[in-house]
Design a protein around this nucleic acid. Structure first.
Length: 269
DNA sequence: CCCGTGCCCTGGCGGC
DNA sequence: TGCCGCCAGGGCACGG
């Protein structure tokens, strides 16, 4: 479940590894990952160089010569760099470079997406045109106004990438814990001070997790040999029945908007 | 527009 | 041991 810190870690690692590589061929073993017409995708991307890799929220953005390639890893997407090795079961898209090296997109659940868009207008084109700012960039009063209009649980709002980007299930739980707010509180009951606290906590948790290379748990193990260390810093997520680091009350697990959600029933109310 | 539900997908796990 | 059914979940299509 790569969220902002994991995607940023992948971005940095990939940029170091493949900046300036020229794509000479793409092979698809499960083409539904690519949202463009596949033959058009292959033809357009051929001979373009990877000049830079950006990130917005949970999206990776490969800046090529005339196009950009926008990638969402969803639950399990990851990259490996190889050459001359047999294709593994979950390697779906292979980018072969002029150097002979290959970038392989691996995704056990096949949930990820790869989209090629023109460099000219990709920020004004779906999906990035719908994407909200990250916590570090969001305007607090606009964010608060949005909360006031929402009659749904605060956790559901924080997971909505059109309202705030970068947070997923892990970091929403951690953000709400630091903010001492229960995930089922209705968004329109959040005060301006609480909204400010949410943004502050989100920035804090994302920064710290990014510094530690993200969180490595279960399904999302590693990409390019990168192992995050933030799992050791989690306060509530994946800590059912363990003591709250603040008050020692047992962490409980519940469902919110269909997502596994971890809460300290004493600190968060 | 707002919100809830189901879908995509497959490895892992509990139950028998 | 083996099989069945269910669960995990980000984001979108769809429907009320």
């Amino acid at each position: 479940m790569p969220e902002l810190p994991e995607v940023e870690t992948v971005r940095r690692t990939l940029e170091l590894a493949i900046q300036n590589e020229k794509i000479i061929e793409v092979k698809d073993y499960y083409s539904k990952i690519i949202t463009n017409d596949v033959e058009d995708f292959k033809k357009r991307i051929q001979y373009q160089r990877i000049n830079r890799i950006d990130r917005m929220g949970k999206y990776l953005i490969f800046i090529l010569d005339s196009d950009v390639m926008i990638i969402h890893l969803r639950m399990e997407g990851k990259f490996f760099i190889k050459r001359d090795e047999p294709i593994l079961k979950h390697e779906h898209i292979v980018f072969r470079f002029e150097s002979g090296r290959e970038l392989r997109y691996h995704d056990m659940r096949k949930f990820g997406t790869i989209t090629l868009l023109s460099k000219d207008n990709y920020l004004e084109t779906y999906p990035l045109n719908k994407l909200a700012p990250e916590p570090k960039d969001i305007n607090l009063s606009k964010f608060y106004e949005t909360l006031q209009k929402k009659r749904i649980e605060i956790k559901a709002v924080l997971l909505d990438q059109h309202i705030l980007s970068g947070l997923g299930n892990i970091y929403v739980d951690e953000t709400l814990f630091l903010s001492r707010i229960h995930p089922t509180r209705l968004a329109n009951t959040i005060s301006i001070d609480e909204a400010k606290q949410i943004i502050k906590s989100a920035i804090e948790v994302l920064d710290k997790a990014t510094k530690l290379g993200g969180t490595t748990i279960r399904s999302y193990t590693s990409s390019l040999g990168v192992h995050g260390r933030f799992q050791n810093e989690l306060n509530v997520h994946m800590r059912k029945d363990l003591p709250c680091p603040i008050c020692q009350t047992k962490i409980i697990k519940m469902k919110v908007k269909g997502r596994g959600t971890y809460v300290c029933p004493s600190c968060q109310d």
